[in-house]
């Protein structure tokens, strides 16, 4: 028998050291993470936006859109079948086609898109009709003090006070990133609420209903705040405002 047979229970407890070492590394990462995140984003962000293969997007970095959908597949709507209904406590209910919306005065904004889960896409160009312009067309009745927004995905809803909805940086967006809003980004028409977290910017917008009192939307049911101001809600005080 060879003399150098290892004693099965001998040797150094390297496994334990590796586990503890990784735990230490993870804890250090939690504490220093924000700075680290910025570093990774600065490094990968510019590469990712110019990467034709999309492979860099597989690495965990910040500064890019992540796609969230709360239902299964969402039907595609285009110029032919898209309709935006404006109803509820209004004097003249309206129904707009995509062409109608395109013919209205367009507002351009370049603003960051900040998700409540932490990722932020800087300097996104948005083009669309101010929600306030559409509200003026229908004339809210005296009792109306909020809007409820619905999506043609059938589930996603959001809401704003009338005062918030009339802000000049709240758009019914037709274009983002220099092109028509794609289906995956909530196209052909989505909401963009510049000063608030991304969950307020409802995708696949199909209805605006004027209501008395704010009706909490889909994500509010999961504990997110109704007034989702960037940097001043949901416990996220470190985010720079996007308004």
């Amino acid at each position: 028998m060879p003399a150098d047979r290892p004693d099965p229970l001998g040797g150094a407890p390297v496994g334990r050291r590796i586990v503890l070492g990784l735990l230490g590394l993870g804890a250090l990462g939690i504490v220093t993470g924000t700075a680290l995140q910025d570093g990774v984003s600065n490094l990968l962000g510019p590469i990712e936006t110019r990467d034709p293969t999309g492979l860099v997007g597989l690495f965990p970095a910040g500064d890019t859109f992540r796609y969230y959908s709360v239902t299964g597949s969402v039907e595609q709507q285009g110029a032919r079948d898209y309709r935006l209904d404006i109803s509820g406590l209004v004097q003249r209910p309206a129904r707009h086609t995509l062409a109608d919306l395109q013919a209205m005065p367009q507002t351009t904004l370049v603003r960051d898109f900040q998700c409540v889960t932490g990722w932020r896409v800087p300097d996104v160009p948005w083009v669309g009709v101010q929600l306030g312009y559409l509200l003026d067309l229908v004339g809210p009745t005296r009792g109306a003090d909020a809007v409820r927004l619905t999506s043609f995905d059938g589930i996603y809803t959001e809401s704003l006070t009338l005062e918030q909805a009339r802000r000049p940086d709240v758009l019914v967006a037709l274009r983002m990133l220099g092109a028509p809003v794609t289906h995956d980004h909530g196209g052909p028409v989505r909401l963009y609420v510049a000063p608030m977290y991304g969950y307020k910017s409802l995708k696949w917008l199909s209805g605006v209903e004027l209501t008395r009192g704010v009706v909490p939307g889909y994500w509010e049911g999961s504990g997110y705040e109704i007034d989702g101001w960037v940097g001043a809600s949901n416990g996220r005080t470190a985010d720079d405002p996007t308004s």
Partner: peptide, 15 residues
């Protein structure tokens, strides 16, 4: 804190 949660997210992603 928020900063720690951002760090935790980054660590969770890479690990």
């Amino acid at each position: 804190s928020d900063a720690w949660r951002t760090g935790a997210t980054l660590m969770h992603d890479w690990f």
